[in-house]
């Protein structure tokens, strides 16, 4: 009778290579963790931490283009306090962010609710809704610029033909209307992000809940109010906060459409920072304007992180 194999010898894996020093090193969890984290740390450090630190550094000097500058403490920030254009930019940024966010949320939610229904050509429609979001902002904003052009405005032409107006509307030339125009374009560009994100959120809600609520006697509005909305709230919060951060620091759209004008009527944090820092070459003051946004965005991020954490705990 043969002796059982297992008793005679340990199984050996013929042909298995001996483990080299690198392999042995990587089997230590601490080293492996460091190696796996390295790419992220390098990327974040290079493209986020370094520019940020550099920005802080600049903001406390009197550097201009070509001149290294000396440490001046908080003088740049103090100067901003007395800068009337800066105050306008701050007010504009808050107004711009608040108005667009409200409209983007309302329209995006409405669109998401519509897209969440079953209809023919659903997939295609959903894809088309994303268009404003995926076209490069500068390109689409140029198109809007033409539509708002005092002479060639297609909007004016349409309103005129419909008999709604009798004189040209100077969309981008009038200070009040310029802000309205910028806000309209921002809403147009931002709604798809809301719509698609909220649609994704809606699709995680079990449709049986709607049926259960219908049987429970809830009318459509009540079903939205008591079932859909509370369940969509976590997604909505994240989307809104992301959008606030984006909008608060918006640059391209205003830069292309009005350049912050007329007479600073559409001047925002980012455009003003650019105008001072790059336009006039006062790098340190531009950095100070940029950094003035930081506390606001920090608050938004903290709120967001706290909220996400609360949702995760529950």
């Amino acid at each position: 009778m043969a002796v059982p194999y297992a008793l005679t010898e340990r199984p050996s894996y013929a042909g298995a290579p001996r483990r080299g020093p690198v392999t042995r090193l990587l089997e230590d969890q601490r080293w492996l963790a460091a190696v796996l984290l390295a790419p992220t740390i390098v990327l974040l450090g290079l493209f986020i931490a370094y520019p940020f630190v550099k920005g802080v550094e600049l903001s406390v000097t009197d550097a201009t283009v070509g001149v290294a500058g000396h440490f001046v403490g908080l003088r740049n920030f103090a100067a901003l306090m007395g800068d009337s254009i800066f105050r306008i930019a701050v007010a504009n940024t808050f107004l711009y962010t608040a108005v667009t966010t409200v409209f983007k949320l309302a329209l995006g939610l409405w669109l998401a609710l519509l897209l969440n229904r079953h209809f023919k050509g659903k997939a295609l429609t959903r894809a088309f809704v994303l268009l404003p979001f995926i076209i490069p902002t500068v390109l689409s904003t140029f198109a809007w610029k033409w539509m708002f052009d005092p002479t060639f405005s297609v909007i004016n032409w349409t309103l005129f033909r419909l008999g709604l107006i009798h004189a040209r509307i100077n969309w981008l030339g009038d200070p009040g209307l310029a802000m309205v125009s910028v806000i309209i374009v921002n809403i147009w560009r931002g709604v798809p992000f809301y719509a698609i994100s909220l649609l994704a959120g809606l699709q995680t809600i079990n449709p049986e809940l709607q049926e259960a609520a219908a049987i429970d006697g809830a009318r459509p509005w009540q079903r939205f109010r008591y079932v859909t909305w509370p369940l969509l709230l976590p997604v909505t919060m994240v989307v809104v906060l992301f959008s606030i951060i984006q909008t608060f620091a918006d640059f391209q759209l205003v830069y292309v459409l009005t350049g912050g004008g007329p007479a600073n009527a559409t001047q925002l944090f980012a455009t003003y920072a650019y105008q001072i820092g790059v336009g006039t070459g006062l790098l340190s003051q531009g950095a100070a304007v940029s950094l003035a946004m930081f506390p606001v965005l920090l608050v938004v991020v903290i709120v967001q992180l706290l909220y996400i954490r609360r949702v995760e705990i529950h």
């Binding site: 079990n206 049926e211 259960a212 609520a213 219908a214 049987i215 429970d216």
Partner: peptide, 27 residues
């Protein structure tokens, strides 16, 4: 459905996840 005076129990329970047991029953 609401005017038919019926109540339904679903296969996947279809409880409102954000409401307490009490509120689910009271809804």
């Amino acid at each position: 459905p609401m005017d038919r005076d019926i109540a339904m129990v679903f296969q996947n329970y279809a409880l409102y996840p954000h409401m307490s047991v009490y509120d689910n029953m009271a809804f």
